[in-house]
Amino acid sequence: MAIVKTRHLTKRFGKFVALNGVNIEVNKGEIYGFIGPNGAGKSTTLRILLGMLKATTGEARIFGKDAWKDAVDIHKRVAYVPGDVNLWPNLTGGEVIDVLLRMRGEVNKNRRNELIEKFRFDPAKKCRTYSKGNRQKVALIAAFASNADLYILDEPTSGLDPLMERIFEECVIQAKNEGKSILLSSHILSEVEKLCDTIGIIREGKMIETGRLSDMRHLTRTNFIIRTKKPVPSLKDVKGIHNVRETGPELAFQADPDQIDEIIRYISQFGVVKLESTPLTLEDLFMRHYQEINHSGQMEDS
């Protein structure tokens, strides 16, 4: 059963269309990466899922219940970390963590203290003195100390240092191993790539691509960096080669998967000194996608 499911979710603010027919499906035990640039509609979608905004049309269901009507019921099993964590300035971090935990149900003191320790967080300071990263820690501790079945995380690591980011990843993976579902919105692609099973890409309120990460990678190219004894002539004209760039003595390009054999044969004639191949990162994927859209857009214009 899908834990989160939206169908043709549309949200308008006056004339502005924030979401236009968004479909998302997060299954049990799955980490769903929800990717898009700033202002694409990620947070709006999450706020609809949390029952704070009412969808103009379409449907949003969590645990099979209506996200707007059954919000309170749903939230007993949901933990949420907002993208921009705002806290009550005159409460301490420790107080806020307890308050937030209590609003869902019982407070698991051990788990709470363990996480405070793990994130190296000082709970005795007033929230107004915390930096962005520390405010984020409050939200993360409150989320992972709760015994939720679904975690909704909106760009949760944007203020954390790499060390804390790793602890965050551990928490996410632990939750996944316990069979929990995670909806992770981000524009940090490496994070999504590392953690997610499925991704959905949103742009200007529309989903432009959804699928399992492994399937999407299959459709894409591989990055190559080579150095040869003799210069390689007319590399650009070889079939299946894209984006050729010269960096000093090295050549970098992308290759279509079905042409790799041919390409290797061709370049090996020139005495290969160095050959590096890496799978495309999500970043490349993302860029490529936008390029295509821009291309087709331009073509339509002309």
Partner: peptide, 14 residues
């Protein structure tokens, strides 16, 4: 206005 109610409404509070 200060985005503080989302802390509450994302939990089980009506």
């Amino acid at each position: 206005n200060k985005n503080l109610t989302e802390n509450i409404y994302s939990r089980a509070v009506s």
